[in-house]
Amino acid sequence: MTVAGEHTTAASEAEPPAEPSRLGLRHPRSRLAWIRPAMWLPLVVMVALLAALWQWGARRLPYLLPSLPDIGRSLTEDLGYYVHNALTTLGEATAGLGLGFSAAFVLAVLTSEFPFVRRAVMPVAVVLNVTPIVAVAPALVVAFGFGPMPKLIITGLICFFPILINTAAGLRSVPREVLQVYRTVDAGRVELLWHLRIPHAMPYVFAALRIVFPLSIIGAVVAEMAASGSTRGLGTAISVASSMNQLPVVYASIFVLALMGVVLLLAVTLVERRVLHWHDSAQD
């Protein structure tokens, strides 16, 4: 008993305790890191410097840049106008992103499983990626009318290619040795896809989502500006305000769009940390 106890004690002393990051937990210090001035002070200094440069440019070129107080006054005095148009743009962005994501994910699975599908789809996807979407907008309006469908298609096309490429790369990046182990236990194609390829591709999918979520906002705005017949949305608000030389409204709308993009990016990052808590990319 004494010898066994000595061996147990020696083994416990030889093995260091598991780190919180390896257990899927974040170290308590990482949660309080933002309190340190070194974390937030550079951003505060940069924002203050940009604000000072903006104000200097607004005084020198008032016909190009409105002052920050004028932009803030436009936001506060007509907040409902911006919220209403922002919700319209956000709805178009998320719906178009869902459309593009669904099509791209299905095609990525098919191209990773069937080489002949990859040879047929990828050249067409490259052509769609390099085609100016704005030039296609009038044809989409003629085909689908003045409703939301042309905007959803334009947004989906803008988001389609990054999701397709990243997801296909993730599905094909499973190590050959791991695939051989699964095949030795007679795992079928569907089992390999569901239990191995898709989980392995999730970091690639979230990397694509970090790109296309803010990009979907840009796609919705481009669609509102390019597709005729649009009456709501921040893209329409920018077009109308530009034609009437209302610079505070233009830049206030741009500020709201930037804020929406930041919020969407933070939301994707938080979801990624929850879903991929087991992956090295979620450990800081």
Rank of each mutant, 00 (worst) to 15 (best):
L87Y: 14
T88A: 14
T89A: 03
E92Y: 12
E92C: 01
T94K: 08
A95W: 14
A95D: 07
G96C: 07
L97D: 03
G98N: 06
G98W: 10
A103Y: 08
A104F: 06
L107N: 01
L107K: 00
V109Y: 07
V109H: 03
T111L: 04
P115R: 15
R119C: 09
A120M: 12
P123K: 09
V124F: 15
V126A: 14
L128H: 05
L128Y: 10
N129H: 15
N129L: 13
T131P: 00
P132H: 13
A135I: 11
V136C: 08
A139K: 10
L140M: 09
V141K: 02
A143K: 10
F144I: 06
F146W: 13
G147C: 04
P148G: 13
P148H: 15
P148E: 15
M149V: 15
K151T: 05
L152N: 07
I153M: 10
I154E: 07
I154P: 00
G156I: 09
L157P: 01
I158K: 01
P162T: 09
L164P: 00
I165L: 11
N166S: 07
A168E: 15
L171Y: 07
R172Y: 09
S173T: 06
P175T: 06
V178C: 03
R183M: 06
T184V: 13
V185Q: 12
V185R: 10
G188D: 13
G188N: 07
V190E: 11
V190T: 14
E191H: 10
L193Q: 03
W194T: 12
H195E: 13
H195N: 12
L196Y: 04
R197Y: 09
P199Y: 10
A201I: 02
A201G: 00
M202T: 12
P203G: 02
Y204R: 05
Y204Q: 10
V205I: 15
V205Q: 02
F206T: 01
A208L: 01
A208P: 00
P214F: 08
P214M: 06
L215N: 09
S216P: 00
S216D: 08
I217G: 01
